[in-house]
């Protein structure tokens, strides 16, 4: 019967749209209290990608929380930089909101000249933070990270590590591990996590670092956690800190608005976002999608994003990748 509900909802929308036609012809955003109009979530990735799916999971509840329509616009291309550039150019009125993963805002600005930087945005809040885990297949010859590092030292440049593309978090993880352990892994980039996991299972690459939830899903063994503390599910897997390196990394999705957006709008969005992330239905969907909801205050997220930005610059600089 739920399909019936879906039809009704859409029909109601249409009716509203038709009735509101007169109102639609009003001049842009009347000066009412925010939000008085449709809020557009701009996703710099294609429909169906991880960030897009997460955004669509919060879309209905966020609309309820804001008390307005929320729509999703995908502007994809060039590792997310095309859409992020469009978001940076948008009117700073809170009606265009960037929802993105770390890459376009915290990594790409170091790799090439872009018409924006992290400073072009005002942070709103974090949607999710998923810890990273370095994984190997179950039949891998390496049972611990120490064994892997020892083998890599014996055969420099021979052990292959997959990533989901140059300048992605899994790639940064390879660079960080290389630097920390003084080893040299052979990096092979693939288009996205799924492709990399397929090659990991098929034996083309020996290891891959990605969100920790992938390990049980694909029956992979965890070797190394990139979180601050050991993961609950993997009490025996050491963290980078256990190995003596002060490095923390995680996959995150965050929300930003253009820099000049008024403070009270950012606050309103942060509040709505955090309420959304406490909604039981959203929590259930996130659990199914292997996303860990991770609400923050504006200040926390600001500091977090900045730290991330600096960390990736350091990693890329050391590897000689900063242009």
């Amino acid at each position: 019967m739920k399909i019936h509900r879906m039809l009704c909802a859409t029909r109601r929308e249409f009716a509203a749209a038709t009735l509101a036609f007169g109102a639609l012809a009003m001049p842009l955003h009347a000066q009412d209290a925010y939000p008085s109009d449709t809020v557009t979530l701009l996703i710099p990735w294609a429909a169906g990608g991880a960030t897009d799916v997460a955004a669509r999971a919060i879309q209905p509840t966020l609309a309820e929380q804001l008390g307005t329509d929320v729509i999703i616009k995908n502007v994809s291309g060039a590792a997310g930089t095309i859409g992020t550039a469009e978001a940076a150019r948008a009117r700073p009125d809170g009606y265009t909101v960037l929802v993105t993963s770390a890459g376009p805002v915290a990594v790409q600005p170091h790799l090439r000249k872009l018409p924006y930087d992290l400073d072009s945005f005002k942070p709103v809040g974090r949607v999710s933070l998923t810890p990273m885990l370095t994984m190997v297949p179950q039949d891998s010859p390496y049972n611990t990270i120490e064994e892997l590092i020892a083998a890599a030292k014996e055969n420099p440049g021979q052990i292959t590590a997959g990533s989901s593309g140059a300048g992605t978090l899994p790639h940064l993880a390879i660079l960080a591990l290389n630097k920390a352990a003084g080893i040299e892994l052979k990096h092979i980039p693939f288009q996205g996590s799924n492709a990399a996991i397929k090659e990991l299972l098929g034996g083309t690459v020996a290891l891959f670092s990605d969100q920790s939830q992938s390990a049980p899903k694909y029956e992979l063994n965890g070797l190394l956690a990139w979180s601050g503390e050991r993961l609950e599910e993997y009490p025996d897997v050491p963290t980078m800190k256990d190995l003596g390196y002060d490095i923390e990394m995680g996959n995150w999705i965050g929300v930003f608005v253009p820099l000049d957006t008024p403070e009270e709008i950012a606050t309103a969005l942060n509040e709505a976002l955090n309420n959304t992330l406490n909604d039981p239905e959203v929590l259930q969907n996130f659990a199914d999608l292997l996303l860990a909801p991770s609400p923050t205050s504006i200040e926390e997220f600001d500091a977090f994003a900045r730290a991330n930005y600096e960390f990736s610059r350091e990693m890329l600089q050391d590897a000689g990748l900063v242009q």
Partner: peptide, 25 residues
């Protein structure tokens, strides 16, 4: 395997996951 080969099957998969089908071995 739980490995979608293209964006289309990736979206299909995320729907199935939400509905309680956990693709994989």
């Amino acid at each position: 395997l739980g490995i979608p080969g293209d964006p289309v099957t990736a979206v299909v998969m995320s729907t199935l996951i939400i509905q309680g089908i956990q693709p994989g071995v």
